[in-house]
Write a protein that binds this DNA or RNA. Structure first.
Length: 321
DNA sequence: CTGTAATCCTGCGAGC
DNA sequence: TGCTCGCAGGATTACA
């Protein structure tokens, strides 16, 4: 592992879930007593009025949605955090020495404090006075959580686009929480080339992908996510899933299944790792396939072509009113 | 519609 | 030793 920065945790769903779980018992029931800010701004600018709004706010709970951490505050208010690439959200004793790149500190009523540190400042911390309004907006932009995905809806979303699988998996409106690492790992587990187009997948391949996403993320959550270099979760413990990477960051190393060197190409603007043998680019044709068996009569589900102005895009498939 | 690339940002390692 | 450069990438935006 040489090409990764020192803070590179690349927080995807498993890492964010780990942080949320670590923070939950440390934050629940606590009251924020002040707000301190560092000089550097984050992705979304901090509103000075939030200082007063947060002071005295009691924390009711900590949740995760996609890659977002949601800190529920009393009176239906919300603190929303995105870790970006290098964000770290921790609760530590207030007398703990402050590290560099510390951007936000929320002292708590028990002598500890919630800290947001972020070297590359791709992350964000935002306050919302109306929790329900934010959730409505998030549910409009985010697809379903990747656990217990409805196979039919997932198949519709995947086969309804000409984009490649890597782009589809990174699209948070299709499935929420998948990032570059777990997209590659899921494609490997499903034995699908990440450059395959969504609409080229047969139903059985869609189901394989669906199952692979869930399996990879479940295992990663159980391992407390992946630690690349010295990333730590909200409690200071390291993740272990990086030792289970089959393809990610393993360019040139042997495929764990067939020993073929892992390849790396750029897809959707991201480095994409795969086994050229286990994940063939061309859709496999089975000997048992009857020639000419799939002809007419597509089930009439016409999802596209909505004339309205808004860009509904692929989101329509997984959206529910 | 799809893809590509730039944007934000810092640290690291390769190369000179 | 010390410099530049490319790269890492989540989300967003502009453009081909």
């Amino acid at each position: 592992m040489s090409a990764f920065g020192p803070e590179a945790s690349m927080p995807e769903l498993p890492e964010v879930e780990t942080v949320a779980r670590d923070l939950r018992p440390r934050l629940r029931g606590r009251t924020i007593t002040a707000v301190r800010r560092g000089p550097a701004g984050l992705r979304r600018p901090w509103d000075r009025a939030w200082d007063a709004a947060l002071t005295g706010a009691r924390v009711e709970g900590v949740r995760r949605r996609g890659k977002w951490i949601l800190i529920d505050l009393a009176e239906a208010r919300l603190l929303r955090v995105h870790l970006g690439m290098t964000g770290q959200l921790t609760v530590v004793p207030a007398n703990e020495p402050e590290p560099d790149h510390l951007h936000l500190v929320f002292p708590l009523d028990d002598g500890s404090e919630l800290r947001y540190r972020d070297v590359r400042r791709f992350g964000s911390v935002e306050y919302f006075p109306d929790r329900a309004a934010v959730e409505t907006e998030m549910n409009r932009e985010l697809g379903p959580e990747p656990f217990g995905l409805d196979p039919d809806a997932f198949r519709t979303a995947v086969t309804g686009t000409a984009r490649n699988l890597k782009a589809v998996l990174l699209d948070q409106s299709v499935v929420a929480g998948v990032g570059n690492i777990y997209a590659d790992e899921a494609c490997f587990r499903a034995r699908l080339h990440p450059g395959r187009t969504g609409k080229s997948l047969r139903p059985e391949e869609c189901n394989r992908l669906r199952d692979a996403i869930e399996a990879v993320l479940t295992r990663a959550v159980a391992s407390r996510g992946s630690t690349i270099r010295d990333y730590v979760g909200g409690s200071g413990l390291e993740g272990r899933f990086q030792t289970e990477f089959a393809v990610y960051g393993r360019t040139g190393e042997p495929c764990p299944v067939c020993r073929t060197p892992i390849a790396c190409v750029r897809l959707a603007g991201r480095s994409s790792h795969f086994c050229p043998v286990c994940q063939p680019k061309d859709p496999p044709r089975r000997a048992t396939d009857r020639p000419g068996s799939r002809s007419g009569g597509r089930p009439g589900g016409r999802a596209g072509s909505r004339g309205a102005g808004r860009a509904v895009s692929s989101r329509a498939a997984s959206r529910r009113d």
